[in-house]
């Protein structure tokens, strides 16, 4: 049987990813505590998406797994974005 090499993430690597995530969380709380109007929402969403991407790539191992998983996740997220865009076109231009 042909065994492909499994990638083992080190403990240090996981710890570093965790520190990045906690730092990003602290940054969002700091940014949104200042009143910046619409920019608050944008900043919070950009940071949340970055955190989600880090969790998907490193904790959920998409970066190291077979390419098919990354492809599937991207496809599902793309469909979701299309649904959001269509919904808001409806509400904004109704």
């Amino acid at each position: 049987m042909e065994e492909h090499k499994t990638h083992i993430s080190s403990y240090g690597n996981h710890l570093f990813v965790l520190l990045c995530l906690i730092t990003l969380t602290t940054i969002t709380v700091a940014i949104t505590s200042v009143q910046l109007g619409a920019f608050n929402t944008t900043a919070a969403m950009i940071i949340a998406s970055t955190k989600a991407a880090i969790v998907l790539l490193y904790f959920m191992h998409l970066k190291f797994d077979e390419k098919i998983f990354r492809f599937m996740v991207t496809l599902v997220l793309a469909i979701y974005v299309v649904v959001i865009v269509i919904t808001f076109f409806d509400y904004l231009y109704r």
Binding site: T25, A44, M45, M60
Partner: peptide, 26 residues
């Protein structure tokens, strides 16, 4: 173990969006 872990990460992933939407954005 890996698949159980994936489920747990999903729960984390959802919270990553719940937190700013409900607690932060003013």
């Amino acid at each position: 173990l890996e698949n159980g872990g994936l489920y747990w990460h999903l729960v984390d992933l959802i919270w990553i969006f719940l937190f700013p939407l409900f607690y932060l954005i003013h």
